[in-house]
Design a protein around this nucleic acid. Sequence first.
DNA 1: GCATTGAATTGAACACGTTCAAACAAGGGA
DNA 2: TCCCTTGTTTGAACGTGTTCAATTCAATGC
Lengths: 227, 227
Amino acid sequence: MTTVPEPATRSPKAEQTRRTIADAAMRLFRARGYDKTTMRAIADEAGVSLGNTYYYFAGKEHLVQAFYDQMQVLHAEAAATALDGERSFAGRLRVLLDTWVDVAAPYHGFAGQFFQNAADPTSPLSPFSAESAPAREASTALFRRAVEGSDLKVAPALRAELPELLWLLHMGVVLFWVHDASPDQRRTRQLVAGVVPLVTRLTRLTRLPGVRGVVDDVLGLVATLRT
Amino acid sequence: MTTVPEPATRSPKAEQTRRTIADAAMRLFRARGYDKTTMRAIADEAGVSLGNTYYYFAGKEHLVQAFYDQMQVLHAEAAATALDGERSFAGRLRVLLDTWVDVAAPYHGFAGQFFQNAADPTSPLSPFSAESAPAREASTALFRRAVEGSDLKVAPALRAELPELLWLLHMGVVLFWVHDASPDQRRTRQLVAGVVPLVTRLTRLTRLPGVRGVVDDVLGLVATLRT
DNA sequence: GCATTGAATTGAACACGTTCAAACAAGGGA
DNA sequence: TCCCTTGTTTGAACGTGTTCAATTCAATGC
């Protein structure tokens, strides 16, 4: 897997070929799934040679990053409107998680197939990878908005870390969703409905005298390990 | 990936060939890593044809299950002796996590390479898969022993679930360990040292009046989703 | 002994992701 | 007009995991 030319500016023609290939890939991925879609098929569908697709994309996995980014954008849009009018933290968190399930629903079949690759933490598709950093940060920002625009009462030390922790919770929900074979992802929605009040109660608890110490220790440990 | 004959009883000769292949695979995995070890090389090393290795193992990933099981056995042995004399819950938990890091240390380089495959939740190598069930249950039993032989004070409702939750914690440590590039896995040992007192304090907290309700809700949600 | 049957074994063939040397295209000096 | 450079495009070839029809082996029944 060698690096691929990623100049800040690309010739219009090149940009268009790139798009053509990415679009063809998306079509086939959705139609047949990730594994059953061959690079040769993508090249054919795009009307381009096999080697050429490797000129534009470093490998098969990279062809899916576009999907990643697109979903993040869709989520941000859906969340933005739904967030208006919700002032309670519970409500805002619920909105974020629910809208994600809604937005992702059409891709459940396909995503289940390639998230299995994305679970590999060394893959560029991993949500923790450098390649995913932009999408990850955009998503974290969403949770930051949910916190900041709300009436949340939480231990002050925790407040700054909360968006990242919520993003982590979100990843947990995604993991559950990937394996959720129930119709319309009913079980994932159940999980969200149950987990949101739990989290809000937990955050409130962090202000209890006996609990605050533990919270500080947790944050201290996290800080230590981040170095 | 078709199924492979896994009769309860196997002819001695067959059993031996199976072992020969598994051993050859282990040697090469350790020497070159998972990815760089080819199925053809394994067949050669075992003095067997390529096709034959597929007669005994359904695929490359299955060749690593032996390693999994072996490590579980080593851990159980190391933990058993070290557990004697430790009565405190914190001490016992610490022993379990520390011995694992010790036992796994020689395989850190290799394991890092194939755990990337194991992270795939649909892979038979996933710790959640049916194939891993025996090793998983043996490991959970270890944590059950740590709980039962100790002076732990915890909300009664939680006590029964604790072994599985601790196993989950263990998986978290493993995930951290896989990505830990520090010499001698220093950072993972730091994590263990920090996380053990935290967990013990948290379990004690579950008996607080204000906290107990949340614990019950968590357990309720888990129960709901397990159906 | 011999035939029959099922397990064990083989190596060629397949499909796939990926690489690469070569060819092509388009512009811009001389 | 010719050449040189730079970006683009090509398809053959490679290495890999996996499959499979064919073959050999070994035990069992007669």
